[in-house]
C-alpha cells in the first residue's frame, strides 16, 4: 500500500484516556508521536488548505487537486473538507445528514481501495460535525474512529501520518477546539522539543511519499 495521510478533524490525546480507546494509544507507543498545534479559531477548510498548499497562511485555491501537495504526491483525495460537500473519492455534506459511523467506514473503505494505486490524503469530519452540538456521543464517535483505524492498519498499511488539525471541539461555535491535536506517524516530526505545525504535515507527507515504496498486500 502507498502512504496515507489521515486527518481526524477534532481529536486530542485526552480523548484516548477519557474514552478508553484501544488502537490509537497502542499505536502511539509503536511509532513516532507528537502534538499538532493550531490555535483558535480553527476551521476545517482553512486548516486543510494549509496542509494541501504546505504553507502557514495559504490562499485557498478553487481546485484541491491542483494544490502543491497533491501535484507532488499524486495522491487520491478522500472526503477533504475544503468545500461543502467534501472533496474527493468519498464525499459527504458537512452537516449531520451522514451518520458518524457511515462516514468513518466509508472513508476507511475508500482508503483501503485507493491506497493500492496511489498515496491517499483523507479526512474524517465526524467530531466536527457532531460534537459541537452533542457532547454526549463523544466517546461513541471516537471509538468508531479508533476501531476503523485498527481495520486500516490490519489491511496492510505501513506508512502513514494520522493527525488531527486541531483538538476536540469545545462549545457550539464551529471554530472552537482545543489548540492541540494528535500526530502519530511513521515519519519523525521536525523537532523533538516542539509541536508540529499544520503546514508541516503537508511537507512531512511529501517526504514520506518520496522516501517509501508501496508496501505489499
Amino acid at each position: 500500500m502507498y502512504p496515507v495521510l489521515l486527518g481526524i478533524n477534532g481529536m486530542g490525546y485526552g480523548d484516548f484516556t477519557e474514552c478508553d480507546l484501544e488502537v490509537l494509544p497502542r499505536l502511539m507507543n509503536m511509532v513516532e508521536r507528537g502534538v499538532l498545534e493550531n490555535r483558535r479559531p480553527q476551521y476545517p477548510d482553512k486548516s486543510w488548505w494549509s496542509i494541501l498548499n504546505m504553507e502557514p497562511d495559504p490562499t485557498p485555491t478553487g481546485d484541491p487537486s491542483l494544490t502543491l501537495l497533491v501535484k507532488l504526491t499524486k495522491a487520491t483525495l478522500v472526503n477533504i473538507p475544503v468545500v461543502n460537500p467534501t472533496y474527493g473519492a468519498y464525499s459527504i455534506r458537512l452537516d449531520a445528514t451522514t451518520p458518524y459511523d457511515d462516514e468513518v467506514n466509508g472513508v476507511v473503505n475508500t482508503i483501503i481501495k485507493s491506497a493500492g494505486k496511489s498515496p491517499v490524503i483523507a479526512s474524517i469530519t465526524a467530531p466536527d460535525r457532531f460534537l459541537h452540538s452533542n457532547g454526549s456521543i463523544k466517546c461513541s464517535v471516537y471509538r468508531a474512529i479508533d476501531n476503523a483505524i485498527g481495520r486500516l492498519l490490519n489491511s496492510g498499511l505501513s506508512s502513514f501520518i494520522i493527525f488531527s488539525p486541531y483538538g476536540e471541539p469545545i462549545g457550539p461555535s464551529e471554530g472552537e477546539h482545543e489548540d492541540y491535536g494528535i500526530y502519530i506517524a511513521t515519519i519523525s516530526r521536525p523537532r523533538h522539543y516542539d509541536t508540529v505545525k499544520l503546514y508541516e504535515v503537508g511537507i512531512l507527507f511529501r517526504d514520506l511519499t518520496e522516501s517509501v515504496q508501496p508496501s505489499d498486500s
Binding site: 485526552g14 484516556t17 508521536r33 507528537g34 502534538v35 523533538h192
Partner: peptide, 14 residues
C-alpha cells in the same frame, strides 16, 4: 507538562 509532550495530554483528563 509541555506542549510537545503527547502523553502529557493523556494525563490531563485524569
Amino acid at each position: 507538562w509541555a506542549t510537545w509532550c503527547a502523553p502529557c495530554f493523556m494525563l490531563e483528563p485524569i
